[in-house]
């Protein structure tokens, strides 16, 4: 039997700060300009989606990804553009809707949003939110965002922002809601929330066996049924790096990955990285999609099948990689990984 499922393939960046070939960090401004070039190039090489994840740090200077997406939108015609993720808990859902509805207008209907509760929590103190409230913040704001997406006047009341009474929120979309997802990092209660509110499920997998998320896809589909909703898609997001050979990809990625995980380990509770763990994570069982086009394509196809997912977004880059390395990654991903993964999925 031929698999008629349509698969799509995206690229995500967190605005990872670039370095030059000698290892000297580029400016934040140059990194952002490079991200715009990378987004334009992603379309040329064949990617279906380009996403920018909100971050507020020295290593990831990308708090306003929607502005960069608008620049990419003006220079592209086909690729979908979205957040990956928007930290909704510390943002205003009305503003988020307005920014992405504007992006949707500029791009001729190519905007998407992935909403996150925020595992990267730098935005909370920055905008004056209390981390202890993150569950209520996210739940209320995601509920309001679902209302805003429907279009038409919104009536809403909650504790985390001013209520709305029959409020028209502009700009209106031309053809209904744009695609919206909830990013989930391992909490089954978040899976239920995505289904309840009618968002797609974005599984953010950054370590360990991705296969452990398979029950979440099943949980999502069953929960959609329970809430009387039509089926919605499942997306897998995972980090990686593509180069000509497995050895080259690992050699480029490892020192940058080691440095950033070591930096984040104390705050995020990550174990300090070891080469043996890295070898496992980049192998067939792990969550890092690092290798040659063939290796990465095989791993993507296998994981999409296991998870019942129809979209894969590769989070490319790491702080300290060069723009040229990232452009090579994008080229190999678009021109080689995507067609090969599609072929494997069609043949299965």
């Amino acid at each position: 039997m031929t698999d008629a499922t349509t698969y799509t393939f995206g690229l995500d960046t967190f605005g990872d700060r670039n370095a030059d070939a000698s290892g000297t960090p580029l400016s934040h401004a140059q990194t952002i300009r490079n991200v715009v070039e990378e987004g334009v190039f992603a379309e040329q090489t064949g990617a279906d989606f380009f996403g920018i994840g909100e971050h507020h740090t020295e290593e990831f200077p990308m708090p306003a990804g929607d502005v960069a997406l608008a620049a990419i939108a003006a220079r592209t015609s086909r690729i979908h553009l979205g957040s990956a993720v928007t930290v909704l808990s510390s943002d205003d859902p009305v503003r988020v809707f307005q920014r992405y509805s504007t992006l949707n207008a500029i791009s001729g209907g190519r905007a998407e949003v992935i909403l996150g509760r925020g595992s990267s929590i730098d935005s909370f103190p920055l905008f004056g939110y209390d981390l202890a409230d993150y569950e209520q913040l996210f739940d209320e704001k995601a509920t309001l965002f679902a209302e805003l997406l429907k279009g038409g006047p919104v009536t809403w009341e909650g504790k985390t922002r001013a209520g709305l009474l029959n409020q028209d929120v502009v700009p209106h979309t031309e053809s209904g809601p744009f695609p919206a997802w909830i990013g989930v990092g391992g909490n089954p209660e978040s899976v239920i929330r995505a289904a309840r509110l009618g968002f797609g499920l974005a599984l953010a997998i950054i370590g360990g066996r991705p296969a452990r998320f398979a029950p979440y896809s099943e949980l999502f589909l069953r929960a959609l049924e329970k809430f009387g909703r039509a089926p919605l898609p499942v997306l897998m997001h995972a980090p990686g790096h593509v180069a000509a050979t497995d050895e080259q990809a690992k050699a480029e990625f490892w020192p940058r990955y080691r440095d950033i995980i070591t930096l984040m380990a104390p705050q995020r509770g990550f174990a300090p990285p070891t080469t043996s763990r890295f070898d496992w994570e980049t192998g067939p069982e792990g969550a890092l999609f690092v290798g040659s086009p063939g290796t990465v394509a095989r791993k993507i196809a296998a994981n999409l099948r296991t998870l019942g997912a129809t979209r894969f977004d590769l989070k490319y880059g790491m702080p300290g990689l060069t723009h040229e390395q990232l452009m090579t990654n994008i080229e190999l991903y678009g021109r080689e990984v995507i067609p090969r993964a599609r072929e494997m999925l069609a043949a299965s």
């Binding site: 089954p188 209660e189 899976v191 239920i192 029950p215 099943e218 949980l219 929960a223 329970k226």
Partner: peptide, 16 residues
């Protein structure tokens, strides 16, 4: 148990 009604986690329990 979660913080509320067990019905809310019945699906989670059954599948996960």
């Amino acid at each position: 148990a979660a913080s509320g009604d067990p019905d809310d986690i019945a699906l989670i329990t059954e599948l996960v």
